[in-house]
Simulated scan of single mutants.
Amino acid sequence: MEDLQQLVRECLANDRRSQEKLYRKFYPALFLLCRKFFSQPEEAVEVLNDGMLQVFTQLEKYDAAKGEFFNWVYTVVRNTALDKIRSRKWPSHNEIDEEVVTTQNNTLDKLAWEDIYKLLDALPPSTRAVCTLFYLEGFPVKDIAEMLKQSPGTVKWHLSETRSKLKPILEQHYLK
Rank of each mutant, 00 (worst) to 15 (best):
N94G: 10
E60F: 14
N94P: 12
K89L: 03
L82H: 13
T132W: 02
Q58F: 11
R128I: 00
S87Y: 12
V130M: 04
I85R: 00
Q58W: 10
Y135F: 09
D115Q: 13
V77Y: 11
W72L: 03
F56Q: 02
L30M: 07
V45W: 04
K110M: 08
Q58M: 06
Y62T: 06
N105E: 10
K84W: 11
Y135G: 03
A64T: 10
E43T: 13
N94R: 09
K66F: 12
L33F: 00
L123I: 05
G67V: 00
L53F: 10
A81N: 01
P41I: 01
E95P: 06
P91G: 08
L108T: 06
A81S: 04
S126K: 08
H93D: 14
Q54D: 07
R78Q: 15
D121I: 02
S126C: 07
A64Q: 14
A129K: 03
A81L: 04
D121C: 10
V101C: 07
A129L: 02
P28A: 08
S126R: 09
Y74M: 02
R35A: 01
D121L: 11
F56A: 04
K118R: 14
F70N: 02
W72V: 05
N79C: 08
D83Y: 12
P28C: 06
N71P: 05
A65Y: 13
D63W: 01
E99R: 12
L59T: 10
N106S: 10
E42H: 03
G51R: 03
